[in-house]
Design a protein around this nucleic acid. Structure first.
Lengths: 147, 147
DNA sequence: AAAAAGACTACTAAATCCATATACTTTGTA
DNA sequence: TACAAAGTATATGGATTTAGTAGTCTTTTT
């Protein structure tokens, strides 16, 4: 399961993506728009900024904005910034690898082998999907509901 | 990430799969073979038994065994018994569904839409892979290491 | 009867997650 | 220049979950 942090981060990026190129958006605005606790969102946006995804502007008329085009921000990146490993087993994680304590021989572990496949399948979707794609998907979903 | 419970369950089932058709295996034997805390494994095997995957026999010469052929036990089942949701978001889970509190309209949520795809990809692997497949994979891995 | 093995219940220590609080810094503007 | 708006940073606390342990009871075999 993804943490709320990761979920909030993605939702916030979608909102920011819709405003790309415009004036920066304030935390409180994003928070109220997406029902995210403001103080928590504050920390999250800060992480995304420190990771180079967002710029920030202090003071009156300040706020946050995307540094890159939404089509260049992929979900894997977000997941990794917010600390959510893609893999379901630590011994299979590319960026958060940890040896399974109980495992005798990692190289011949069949369970691990399967979860390498699972990770690859997940990674494929997440590394191909951008914030822009999510915005497009939302438009399609809204369109469908109109029928 | 899968819980240790789920991991231990899978490993135990693999051990039991290798002994399918033979005399039941004792908890302590599986525990020492796979470096799993015995008392913890006890609870896990009980869950698997209550879910109908294992039979148990008390008293001297007792132990646990698979009810079905290892080729008929799939990883999705194990995951669901041990309480590990397949989905990365609660609002996308088939068996552990929960509404995202903060979500305004689930039907038009692009993030959710992507994670439906992720879930399907994961589910495909986990519902196609059996305990027997894991055993086969281990044999292949061992074979490869011999070269 | 005794020993072997699982069944069941309860508990606890540690970790993690979510959220809030508080104090500080920067920037725009009246 | 002073003040208010907004982000920065750190700390803290509560709730929940996870992992593991302990102890007692029940069943079965010898």
């Amino acid at each position: 399961m993804l943490s709320k942090k990761t979920r909030y981060a993605m939702k916030a990026l979608v909102v920011l993506g819709k405003h790309f190129g415009q004036a920066p958006l304030q935390i409180s605005r994003i928070a109220s728009e997406e029902n995210i606790p403001k103080k928590f969102l504050e920390q999250i946006l800060l992480d995304l900024r420190n990771a180079g995804l967002l710029f920030s502007k202090k003071g009156a008329g300040g706020g946050y904005g995307l540094v890159k085009d939404p089509s260049e921000i992929f979900l894997v990146q977000v997941l990794r910034i917010t600390g959510g490993p893609v893999a379901l087993l630590p011994c299979v994680s590319l960026n958060f690898y940890q040896k399974c304590e109980e495992c005798i021989n990692e190289g011949t572990c069949g369970v691990r082998d399967v979860f390498v496949d699972v990770r690859n399948a997940t990674l494929k979707v997440l590394s191909e999907t951008s914030i822009a794609d999510i915005i497009t998907r939302e438009e399609i979903l809204i369109e469908k509901l109109r029928l």
